[in-house]
Design a binder for these strands. Structure first.
Lengths: 219, 219
DNA sequence: ATAACCCAAATTGGATCCAATATTCAATAT
DNA sequence: ATATTGAATATTGGATCCAATTTGGGTTAT
């Protein structure tokens, strides 16, 4: 009998590793907005040449996470208040559709996972983990949806405002409100009420946007 | 007095040139779905090395226009009927919002341009130009909107289904219907009726989707 | 002292070369 | 005849080197 072919190694290419690491560093705020990305420095950090670094940077640019200028290099992209607002509007348009399509397809296991993530988020007292836990809850909710392009867009939109989301969570009662709203969305999913879940998701995002804009320079 | 530094040349980088050329070739259907992109061959075509080609391909992959496999290279990405349907659903969600936001901001000149593009589309008898003219009309409509992320998404979505759009236009009465609907949308814009323009845009996209799916293998 | 200028250092863009992997096809065993 | 093996070829991934451009500091003229 023949053995099943299984990719033991599954080693990603160097450019992908660099891409993932830089993306993570940017959305987590370890690299500040406007900070230049020096190819040579990054290459040394990852023990590679500049070739994979350049490929990673060009992909990051395509995702809007960095901006590059010819012969001047790449810097971490930032968002104006208007741009931030637009991204939240985009999320408020797209993500309710993802939830609506996901609700009728959620399995017991997926609901259990979502409930677990919801609880973990509400229980966490370490601000450093809030961003990840928030995202894990939303991903658990969206996982049952088969709208993969919608999810791509939501993922990228969240990437771009991840820093603002984290700021919003630590703000005033941001964490408490998010926890409450998550629970409401989860309950709607458990009841199988796709319309309600979609509406609450939209309100959740719009609420986050409002509370964020209220604390922004221009408003 | 010193001269202002102005980029006379404004020469784009080789990777950008390759990227633009490949993107154009893919969405226009000159490169067929599934066709492999050989780095060496493309490099020779553009008189460059493979480095800029690889950068271009990685950006195309990020946009979903090609798929790559490690050590196997890139092929032109295709869409299943389900994926095509999802992209049209995404367009039907996003593009009406762009039009809605654009209507109150349209200048006389922009309206005149849109009318011109609308007429050019309806008047054209050369199927090879229909895709471009269709796109130019929509871009003229969307131009006044300041929702740049929404437009990025619409542009990419249209890129991915450009081949299907072209097919839809040459199908049965696709061209005639599109011309009529374009005119309706334009009239709503000229009246300043943003709601109507948005609704007609949504129906325009949903109609194109339906007529496309009706002629697709699976349906 | 200040502004214009010029040259060296830093940085990016691209070309060439080498390594790793996949593919093809002929040779061989069953 | 068919399946398997293995070497030759093709192709991609990455490293190193060179060219083009920007940047920063020192020099000089006013």
């Amino acid at each position: 009998m023949k053995l099943k072919s299984m990719d033991i190694s599954a080693t990603a290419s160097a450019s992908t590793l660099v891409f993932d690491a830089l993306r993570k560093a940017i959305i987590e705020g370890q690299l500040e907005e406007g900070e230049p990305l020096r190819q040579d420095e990054i290459a040394r950090l990852f023990n590679t040449s500049r070739i994979p670094v350049r490929e990673a940077i060009s992909r990051l640019q395509e995702q809007g996470l960095v901006k590059t200028q010819r012969y001047k290099g790449a810097i971490v992209a930032g968002l104006s208040p208007q741009e931030t607002e637009e991204i939240f509007d985009l999320r408020a348009l797209v993500e309710p559709e993802i939830v609506r399509s996901a609700v009728p397809k959620m399995s017991k296991d997926q609901l259990a996972l979502a409930r677990e993530k919801c609880a973990a988020f509400s229980a966490s007292t370490d601000p450093a983990t809030w961003g990840d836990l928030n995202r894990e809850f939303h991903e658990a909710l969206y996982g049952a949806s088969d709208l993969k392009f919608f999810q791509e867009i939501a993922d990228n939109a969240i990437d771009r405002v991840e820093r603002q989301i984290r700021a919003q969570l630590v703000m005033s009662n941001g964490m408490e409100r998010a926890g409450r709203e998550h629970f409401g969305i989860l309950e709607a999913c458990e009841k199988g009420d796709a319309e309600l879940a979609a509406r609450l998701t939209k309100e959740h995002i719009q609420g986050a946007k409002k509370s964020l804009l209220a604390h922004l320079p221009v408003g």
